[in-house]
């Protein structure tokens, strides 16, 4: 999920404050598909991701693009408004109760040496790796991916050489949304979904992305692993409920000492 945020910020330079909310929508979509069609969440990824791509593309093209040149607080308010609308629409439609999916492999686990690994978690991690490498390959090797990176490097330059920057931005936002959709469908197997989950995940995504380096895809993955491990350790050694304090502490340290993130480039 953090990958999506990083992609969007890295290229479009707009901080998506509605990120967690978008993920909750993906999670709800997966529960609905599961309830209606008995579609496994990992298969539901395909239609949900496709829908999210369209949604993300249109959102950027219609709403966010005019805001690119506006000041940050204006962009921020826009996305906060979108987040409020999204999360409360979910509340209206699905109510405050937790929704989940029940698949038979949720309780299965593999033994790898002394470790016990949940099958569901392993599949979620696998999906994340596949999505990340797909994205990485797209940005590195495809012509469109290269064009998007050009926009990120130099907005004016990209315009001068005739790239359709607005279209590429929208494409990027769509791709970020696809990451969110994949993350949401994978998450729904692991946790129940409720509307307030959105803001919490937005913050978590921020921590991860900043620690790893905004706009750096490898950084987002590294940040995710780092935050996951440090929260688990803090929960183990101190108090589980205080674990996020460490994430925010880490965030403060990284912001101060290496604001471009662990793997980010200095701008």
């Amino acid at each position: 999920m953090a990958l999506g945020l990083s992609v969007i910020f890295g290229v479009v330079r707009v901080v998506n404050f509605a990120h967690g909310e978008m993920m909750t929508i993906a999670m709800y979509a997966a529960t609905v598909l599961f309830a209606a069609l008995h579609l496994d969440p990992f298969l539901a990824m395909v239609p949900v991701a496709a829908a999210f791509f369209v949604f993300g593309y249109l959102l950027q093209a219609a709403v966010i693009n005019p805001f690119i040149t506006r000041p940050e607080h204006s962009q921020f308010m826009l996305l906060v408004a979108i987040a409020i609308i999204l999360v409360n629409s979910m509340l209206m439609i699905f109510g405050p109760d937790a929704h989940n999916v029940q698949v038979d492999y949720q309780l299965e686990s593999y033994e790898i040496g002394p470790l016990l690994v949940d099958k569901a978690r392993l599949m979620a991690a696998g999906a994340a790796v596949v999505a990340a490498s797909g994205l990485f390959a797209f940005f590195r090797y495809s012509l469109t991916g290269k064009a998007i990176r050009a926009c990120a490097d130099n907005y004016l330059g990209a315009k001068v050489v005739g790239l359709n920057v607005k279209h590429l931005y929208a494409l990027t936002f769509g791709l970020g949304a696809v990451c969110v959709a994949i993350a949401g469908c994978a998450m729904v197997v692991l946790v129940d979904v409720t509307p307030p989950l959105g803001p919490a995940y937005t913050l978590l995504a921020f921590v991860i992305v900043i620690v790893g380096g905004l706009g750096s895809m490898g950084g987002a993955l590294l940040g995710g692993v780092l935050i996951g491990v440090s929260e688990a350790l803090a929960g183990l050694f101190i108090e589980p409920s205080a674990k996020s304090m460490f994430s925010f502490g880490l965030l403060i340290l990284v912001l101060l000492l290496r604001p471009q993130g662990l793997l980010g480039r200095r701008t």
Binding site: I85, M92, P96, P195
Partner: peptide, 9 residues
Amino acid sequence: PGIKQVFYG
């Protein structure tokens, strides 16, 4: 629940 915030948003 939530309809108020949607309007607000």
